[in-house]
Each structure stands twice: as C-alpha cells, then as structure tokens.
Design a protein around this nucleic acid. Structure first.
Lengths: 248, 248
DNA sequence: TTTGGTCTGTCATCTGGGCGACAGTGCAGA
DNA sequence: TCTGCACTGTCGCCCAGATGACAGACCAAA
C-alpha cells in the first residue's frame, strides 16, 4: 500500500548514531517504576525528559468528568515527556507504567542543550513530534467519522503494525496485555461497548484473546473490514449467519 | 488562572530574532492564494514549508466518508506544513485559504538545513509542534467527554483567547468569519447541531453574530458555563426561563 | 483454600445528536 | 434589478451507544 491510512510511528533512539546515544545516556540517571506508578501527572513541573529502557508506559489525558483518553504508548527505546520541554511548562497529560519499568531521566535543560548542539537529533525530535501529531489527527478523524467497531478494528491494525509479532501467514500476536477499559480509552468509548465490539470480532473468528493478549487470526479480513466494508461484511456473513458488522 | 484548561498557542515567527527572520525570508519565495484555494492536499508531496504573510488558512483532515475535521487555523506570521518536513513524506492533511492569502514558500530541504544550523529556531519548532500536539490532545478530550454545547463554548473561549479583540470589559469581538459548517468541523458535530447550540447561546444573551463574526457579550458567564456548569445554569435560568444548557 | 479485588460479558433502558428535509435569508455577479 | 448559490434556522424521526446493573471469571495474596 503506497500511503497506509494509519500513521506509522517514529523511532527516535533507533535512529541515533551509537556515540550520540551514549552521550545522551550520560546526561541522565535511571529510575525504576512499578506497574501502576505514575511517571508524571498533570500539573507537575515538566522539568524532565524520559527515555524508556524497560517496560511499557502509557500517556493519557484526563477529563474533569473522569474520562480517560489514552494518547499513545511508549516502548523501550522511546522517548516521552517531550512536549513540555521547550517552554518548561507544567504537564498537561499523565503517564503511568503499564508494567514494571525503568526509564532514563534527563533534566529538561540538559536535553535542550543536547538538541541545540546536535542538529541531527533535533530533527529526529521534530520528526517524532510530527508523527505523534499525525497520530492524534488520525484519532480525531476516526472519532468523528467511525463507529465503535470500525474504531476498534483500526486500532487493532495500527497496534499490530507496530507491536505485533507475526505468528504465521495471516496471524499476528499482540503481546501487550490490555484490559477492555484501556481499549475503550484508546478509541473513546465505554468499557461495555468495547467489550461487545471485541466479542463480535471474536465470534467472527477474526481474533482470539488469551491472557489479556490479542491474537489476530485473520489480519487480511480485518483490514478489509475497514478498507472495503461492504464486501467484507458480505464475506463474513457468508461464513456465519452473524451480521454484526454494519454494511457501511 | 494558573493553568488555563485551554492550550495556549505558540508563536513561531514572533519569537525569532530579526536577523534570523530575514535569513529565513531569503530562503523562499512568495505565492498568493485566493479564498478557497488549496495550499496543499492529502497525497501531494510534502516538499515545502509555508509561512503565512497575509490572510488566513485552515489545516484539516478529511475522512473517506466525507467528514472534515478542522485541526487548526494559521494566521499571518505562523508557519505550517511542518509535519511532513522531517521525513519528506506525503501530506496527510489538507490546507485551504479561508480568505485571499499570501505565503512564503520554503523548500523543505532548505528549511531543514536552516534548522540544523540554528538550534534556537529548531527549539521553537519543537515548541510549536508541542503546542499543536497539546491542542489536539485537548480536542480529543473534549470530543469524548463533552456534549456539543460545551464543546462549542470551549471553542469560543479558545478562539477569543487567541484571536479575540477586546471591545469593552466583558465583550470580545472574534473578527474571523466562520460559517456554521466550519464551526461544526472544529468541534466534531454536524452543521445543524452547531447552528442550534449557537442560537441557544445567542438567546441567552451571551453572544451575537454579525457578518459571520461572533461577538461575545459576556465572556465571564461563558467561561462559567464550562468551569462551573451548575451555578452557571442557575444564573442563566434566573434571567430567562430558557433552560437550554444542561445542568451538568 | 478462602477471600477480595479486578476484569469480563451481557442485559434493558434512555437519550443526545445525526440525518434528511425544507423554507427563509442574503450576498454576489449578471 | 433579477437570479442563483451558499448559508441559516428549525423540525421530526430514529438509532448508536452511554449508562447502570449484576453475575460470573480470574488471579494474587493471605
């Protein structure tokens, strides 16, 4: 596909040269987090930049009403907590360890100096932010124009494109453990609706779930569901009499 | 207010030094656009960066279903078309002149060189992208947790904070001409719903509209509507028997 | 092995707002 | 001055999905 409809992620650390990376590592110190720990919270000073070395953390926004919107995940090697760096403002989003994790914590001013010296690295940061920007624009579009099922399918495709381990031809294992609540928070719906939509896909034989990890059985068909919904619906209803996915 | 709930914008050109600005201007050439012209479209090569010198342009995403999501506006002095710069990919969003406009068009590779040389400017770009990132995160949050009226009110506050001309104490004039369709596209709803919500606010005496420009009559009360909805609803219903804005 | 907490699955109910429809307004160009 | 097109205002219908409720599954710690 020439232009994938989902936004490919940007890999920051992986694109730094070895020596640059070492220089960067020398600027900070390591901190460990237990599952569920907050790395930073809205309102806390944004005076550090983080590079995840182990585990997984999620970046999310909280509404006063109590709703959570998961903006993105960070995996080892990825950098986060950047947005407040430039102007050293307060955090407006929250971050929490999804598993026991460890991060390299770099004081904001040092990282800034580092970037000013190394134009190459600065461009990578620009690239990274651009990617995330597009990612959010994409979410926004999904949210306003797709129904829950479609949003869920697109999420799965996006996740598997980035984090999936191919098992066989069409099968992919997403070995990141997600609760239904988290899935819901990623596509802007409720736990119940996410649960229902997920089970509908399960019943169609498109995926299975074991130990909170999603196993995509038929990636091709899953993609058809969003790129060409009409024929996809026809296909699935041919196999089973279930007609859960709307024709358009 | 210590931490405004809306995201303040970042001013790129205004924060460059005079000489740097001149250097930047020397890198590109000017192009004029008529109202309604597309500056770039999804799929077109992202090989330029733009600095608006006159007029106003909007950046928006288009869904295959035909829905439009306006991501942000650019005003004179602002830079846009950045996101595809770093990796020189294809455009994923569209931009269109809202009025007759003129922009300085800089080839992507030149701007990149410029940034690599000037660490200061690079940091401003990082800052700019961070701001937009937060802006989109905010929209995402609004979209999932607020109803149409609240989204509209928040939009108005945000716009007036940035582009409003204070007329008197509580009165502000937003002299950017917006159609109901555009308003709808900014808050992820339909033209009809935006129209209805806007008229409800009009009837409450909070604003008036002349020549497609919104005149905010009572900014304070408008803000109360979203920061403390319960009392605000009580206030308004005391004056008129209309009870359009939901209590919470 | 029990217990408590978190997560899942699935209802029945209610409603915000999407959608189509259509009449009215007003500007811009002939 | 006329004509057409783009925009506005409002209604009624209808449904996707939010909400609340509750029973069962699973797991980790005691």
């Amino acid at each position: 596909m020439e232009t994938p409809w989902f936004v490919p992620p940007s890999d920051f650390l992986g694109r730094l040269s070895g020596s640059t990376r070492d220089a960067l590592y020398a600027l900070g110190h390591r901190i460990a987090y237990r599952k569920g720990d907050a790395v930073f919270q809205p309102g806390s000073p944004g005076d550090n930049v983080y590079i995840l070395t182990q585990g997984r953390i999620k970046i999310f926004a909280l509404s006063p009403v109590g709703r959570t919107v998961i903006l993105w995940f960070c995996f080892p090697g990825e950098i986060f907590g950047l947005a407040e760096m430039a102007r050293a403002g307060r955090r407006e989003v929250a971050s929490e360890a999804c598993a026991d994790s460890e991060a390299l914590v770099i004081p904001q001013f040092r990282f800034k100096e580092f970037l000013q010296r190394d134009g190459e690295a600065a461009m990578l940061v620009v690239d990274l932010l651009s990617c995330r920007l597009r990612g959010l624009a994409d979410m926004l579009l999904n949210l306003t124009s797709d129904d829950v099922t479609t949003r869920l399918v697109k999420l799965l495709i996006r996740l598997s494109a980035r984090y999936g381990k191919p098992v066989s031809d069409a099968e992919t294992l997403l070995d990141i453990s997600l609760t239904h609540q988290e899935i819901a928070d990623m596509i802007g719906t409720t736990r119940q609706s996410a649960s229902t939509a997920l089970n509908a896909l399960k019943r169609q034989g498109l995926l299975s779930v074991k130990k909170h990890c999603i196993h995509i059985q038929n990636g091709k068909m899953l993609e058809d569901l969003v790129t060409n919904p009409v024929t996809a619906a026809a296909q699935t209803s041919a196999g089973s009499s279930l007609q859960i996915v709307r024709p358009f």
